[in-house]
Simulated scan of single mutants.
Amino acid sequence: MTSQSRGIQQLLQAEKRAKDKLEETKKRKNKRLRQAKEEATAEIDQYKLNREADFRHIQTSVMGSQGNLAVKIEEQTVEKVQIYNSSYHKYKEGILKELLDLAYNIKPELHTNYKYKVQ
């Protein structure tokens, strides 16, 4: 009987060691999965940051900054107003003279479509 109980004891010990090894392996696997997940999350975050930086760089190079656009538009508006004012003052007298000449120098004549009927 003692040999039987020794065999059972050895079997129970072997079973316990196998169970311990299995638990240890599961713990290592879970730890490695968590580590891989953290690494993947860090890599994804870094990729997002790089893509956002590239997007912002392209956006500023293509569109310029909003403040810069407002300044450019204001400068162009002021420049155009000055051009229109100088053009107005330059041609004002000549245009008024032409309009007054057209209004005062009326030459009465019959319209080409008018048909004179003799009665």
Score class of each variant (00 low, 15 high):
residue 15 E to L: 13
residue 15 E to Y: 13
residue 16 K to D: 11
residue 16 K to R: 15
residue 17 R to I: 15
residue 18 A to F: 15
residue 18 A to Q: 14
residue 18 A to E: 15
residue 18 A to Y: 11
residue 20 D to H: 04
residue 20 D to A: 09
residue 20 D to I: 08
residue 20 D to Q: 14
residue 21 K to L: 15
residue 21 K to Y: 09
residue 22 L to C: 06
residue 22 L to I: 07
residue 25 T to I: 12
residue 26 K to P: 01
residue 26 K to M: 10
residue 27 K to F: 02
residue 28 R to A: 08
residue 29 K to I: 13
residue 29 K to C: 12
residue 30 N to A: 13
residue 31 K to C: 02
residue 31 K to S: 09
residue 31 K to N: 10
residue 31 K to Y: 07
residue 32 R to T: 05
residue 33 L to S: 02
residue 33 L to C: 02
residue 34 R to P: 00
residue 35 Q to A: 05
residue 36 A to N: 05
residue 36 A to Y: 01
residue 37 K to Y: 11
residue 38 E to T: 08
residue 38 E to L: 10
residue 38 E to G: 01
residue 39 E to I: 08
residue 40 A to W: 03
residue 40 A to R: 08
residue 40 A to H: 07
residue 41 T to K: 11
residue 44 I to K: 11
residue 44 I to S: 14
residue 45 D to R: 12
residue 45 D to W: 03
residue 46 Q to C: 02
residue 46 Q to R: 08
residue 46 Q to T: 06
residue 47 Y to W: 06
residue 47 Y to H: 05
residue 48 K to P: 00
residue 49 L to R: 10
residue 50 N to Q: 14
residue 50 N to V: 03
residue 50 N to R: 14
residue 51 R to I: 09
residue 51 R to H: 06
residue 53 A to G: 01
residue 53 A to N: 06
residue 55 F to E: 07
residue 55 F to K: 02
residue 56 R to F: 04
residue 56 R to I: 04
residue 57 H to I: 13
residue 58 I to K: 15
residue 58 I to G: 02
residue 58 I to H: 07
residue 59 Q to V: 03
residue 59 Q to P: 02
residue 60 T to D: 15
residue 61 S to P: 00
residue 61 S to A: 07
residue 62 V to S: 05
residue 62 V to I: 12
residue 63 M to Y: 15
residue 65 S to P: 01
residue 66 Q to W: 03
residue 66 Q to M: 03
residue 66 Q to E: 14
residue 67 G to C: 04
residue 68 N to S: 15
residue 68 N to H: 13
residue 68 N to E: 15
residue 70 A to N: 10
residue 70 A to Y: 04
residue 70 A to E: 15
residue 71 V to L: 10
residue 72 K to M: 07
residue 73 I to S: 11
residue 74 E to W: 06
residue 75 E to S: 06
residue 75 E to D: 10
residue 75 E to L: 07
residue 76 Q to M: 08
residue 77 T to I: 10
residue 77 T to C: 09
residue 78 V to I: 14
residue 79 E to A: 13
residue 79 E to K: 10
residue 81 V to F: 13
residue 82 Q to P: 00
residue 83 I to G: 01
residue 83 I to F: 06
residue 83 I to W: 04
residue 85 N to I: 04
residue 86 S to I: 06
residue 87 S to W: 10
residue 87 S to A: 15
residue 87 S to F: 11
residue 87 S to K: 12
residue 88 Y to N: 14
residue 90 K to Y: 09
residue 90 K to E: 11
residue 90 K to S: 07
residue 91 Y to G: 02
residue 92 K to M: 07
residue 93 E to C: 02
residue 93 E to S: 08
residue 93 E to M: 06
residue 94 G to H: 05
residue 95 I to R: 03
residue 96 L to F: 03
residue 97 K to L: 12
residue 97 K to D: 09
residue 98 E to Q: 08
residue 99 L to N: 09
residue 100 L to E: 15
residue 100 L to R: 14
residue 100 L to H: 12
residue 100 L to I: 12
residue 101 D to Y: 07
residue 103 A to K: 04
residue 104 Y to Q: 09
residue 105 N to G: 00
residue 106 I to G: 01
residue 107 K to M: 04
residue 108 P to D: 05
residue 109 E to W: 04
residue 109 E to M: 08
residue 111 H to Y: 00
residue 112 T to R: 11
residue 112 T to S: 14
residue 112 T to C: 05
residue 114 Y to Q: 09
residue 116 Y to C: 06
residue 117 K to Q: 12
residue 117 K to F: 05
residue 118 V to W: 08
